[in-house]
């Protein structure tokens, strides 16, 4: 099996604090890989390193064999490494349609087009509309994003990432804050992701992790504790002790 994303001996220090501690992680193409660990284990820091929001103090990152450690954030996105955020990061003053059109145009290298009116390219708008329909956002696509209900915003958060046509998709707690009765919408969306897209999922909801993932890595205090298949992790006494045992659900 080929390797989609890998880190080698990744370290990130904040002053005296070591947020990422020699993490070497390998994620295979097409995997549904979950990253779990108690709060403050350094999962979001790791995502920020992978996507280029932060620069590592040491170590390197490869995407499909290419060393991307020094690449800018947008260059990684153009290579197919796309993320969502734990806390919604949306364009509050734009409509979902505008947001999606922009993401599609950027992917097609049309973002610097300063002459034609945005949306001139019908293929781009159609693609944006198709994604919005798939995510159940078509009815609200002309509203200002800031006025959308939270659940819809959460869906838009994922839709925006999908519009970038990810090869590797990093989902940072996609269901965070979504009420129980709307959760299934998110779960359905995740289940329907194309099989060739590699997905890394950070999640606290163990039901979601166990139903979705085929492989799980456990982080504690910035370091990888263990890695294995779903059953393996569920049985691992070490994991139970540091994570499942003490924090149960949240």
């Amino acid at each position: 099996m080929s390797i989609a994303l890998a880190t080698h001996d990744l370290v990130k220090n904040f002053g005296g604090l070591r947020a990422t501690d020699h993490v070497s992680l390998t994620i295979h193409t097409g995997a549904r890989h979950a990253l779990i660990g108690p709060n403050g284990a350094g999962k979001t820091t790791l995502i920020n390193l992978l996507t280029g929001v932060l620069t590592p103090s040491q170590g390197n990152i490869t995407l499909e064999g290419e060393n991307i450690t020094r690449l800018s954030q947008h260059a990684r996105v153009q290579r197919g490494l796309v993320r969502t955020f734990q806390i919604n990061q949306l364009f509050a003053d734009m409509s979902p349609l505008q947001s999606l059109c922009l993401a599609v145009s950027e992917r097609n290298q049309q973002g610097r087009d300063w002459w034609r009116v945005a949306g001139s390219d019908k293929a781009h708008v159609d693609e944006a509309e198709e994604i919005l329909t798939r995510f159940g956002l078509r009815d609200v696509m002309m509203q200002q994003t800031r006025f959308l209900p939270y659940g819809k915003q959460r869906l838009l958060e994922i839709a925006l990432a999908i519009a970038c046509k990810p090869r590797v998709l990093l989902l940072d707690e996609p269901a965070a804050g979504v009420p129980e009765e709307e959760r299934h919408e998110i779960i359905d969306i995740l289940a329907a992701l194309p099989k060739d897209v590699t997905v890394v999922l950070i999640e606290h909801d163990m039901d979601l992790v166990f139903s979705f993932a085929d492989r799980i890595s456990v982080m504690v205090n910035g370091a990888l504790l263990t890695e294995g298949g779903v059953d393996e992790i569920a049985r691992d006494p070490q994991v139970r002790a540091v994570y499942l045992g003490e924090s149960g659900h949240e």
Binding site: V53, F85, Q89, L102, G111, L160
Partner: peptide
């Protein structure tokens, strides 16, 4: 233009703008 739209995105949320490849 699309460029103008991308500026609005950058102004609105630079973090996300970078994350959709801008």
């Amino acid at each position: 233009s699309t460029f103008g739209l991308s500026l609005r995105a950058v102004k609105g949320n630079a973090l996300r703008a970078g994350a959709i490849g801008i």
